[in-house]
Amino acid sequence: MQDTPWTGRQSTGPMTDSRGTMTSIPVTAAEYPDFKNQSSALCTDVKCVIYSVANVIIFILGIAGNSLVIWIAGFKMKKSVIATWYLSLAVSDFIMCSTLLFGVVQKVTDEWIFGLFLCKFRYFIKLINMYSSVFILVFISVDRCILVMFPVWARNKRTVRKAAVIIMLAWIISAALSSPETIFRDIVHKQKTKCVRKDINEQSHIAIVSCQFIFGFVIPFLIIVICYVLIMRMMKFNQMTTSKKPFKIMTMLIAAFLICWLPFHLYSFLKIHYKGFNFVEVLKLFGVILANANSCLNPLLYAFMGRDFKKQCYSVLSNIENAIEEEEEGQEGVQGTAINNSEESISSVV
């Protein structure tokens, strides 16, 4: 009997020759995939490491930052329209960040281990929070524009109840736009369990991606840009400020929105016809990371830039610091003095 040529990593399997004697022949890893090295499922390539590390950092910063915003906007600040925007945005981003570890585990193990419900729920939550977060950013921009252009009307008509109703409508619309993801997601059992989108025709795929692009990026981005252009023109025309800081902040907000979301939507379109290409996979990596990073940047860009919000934040930090000092030194009255000093310094800066 001729020798079987070596074709790769091999094992041996039993076989009976013409004399009835049991012999062994090579068995390739391609014929028996289970013989593959189990460590190949570990996160060892560069893209996997970058994705995992970046999302763990976003998870930590996002949970911490948005938790602080929820605490201050929900319990420390006086109820107002602005506090309602901040609170809703923080809740949306907090939920978004809380689902990131599912993706990290899936990337590291190259397998979905959380079942069908979480497969559908994770991607539904991911989309619903993408839409709701973007919509709330639009509301914040429109609200700022109204405050600058129609201050008297805004003072009489803006109420917390109306803001809460708008937020509820935003979440309902976001849920409706995210529902296709729940329908088309499913568990596939092959060599490994995967949470994937079901096979759909190209027209349906293009329709879903176009809907996400139009309602999740184009329309919100245009509204935000228009609002901030009107704000800057009004402030410049009325000479409401001599500082360039507001203009820099508005430019930074627009740039952050564009940088965080544009790569993700470009990837969504390119993967329709170029799925598997290296440049598309790289765009996917950075597009998803930047889109996720938006949820930990929002507290810094929108909440902590506000004067009242910064005052409350410094007050909370001062309370913590004073409690530690009182415990160590046993001095009375340190807390009140430190809080007053911090508030005076904030008011003098802002």
Rank of each mutant, 00 (worst) to 15 (best):
C260R: 02
Y131V: 03
M149T: 11
I57F: 10
N298D: 09
S347G: 08
L285A: 02
H189L: 13
C145A: 12
S80W: 00
A323M: 09
Q38A: 06
R197D: 10
L87I: 08
E31S: 13
W261L: 14
I289A: 03
C97P: 08
E281N: 12
N298Y: 02
V196E: 09
Y228T: 03
I63H: 04
L116N: 14
V196R: 05
F269D: 10
T23F: 06
F59A: 03
N37M: 01
S348M: 07
V209P: 00
I125G: 01
V288L: 13
K78H: 09
I146H: 06
G287W: 09
G65N: 08
Y131D: 08
V134N: 10
Y302P: 10
A163K: 02
Q10A: 14
V56I: 15
I57E: 04
L127M: 15
F247I: 14
V46T: 11
L285N: 05
S348W: 02
V160Y: 06
M15Q: 15
F221A: 07
I50A: 04
G74I: 02
A293D: 13
I50R: 07
Q335N: 01
C48N: 02
W153Y: 08
K275N: 09
I224H: 03
S204R: 06
L230D: 03
P5A: 06
I206K: 15
M305P: 07
E111Q: 14
V142C: 12
I57D: 07
K192F: 13
I231Y: 06
S39P: 00
S141Y: 05
F75V: 04
T242K: 13
V334R: 11
M232K: 02
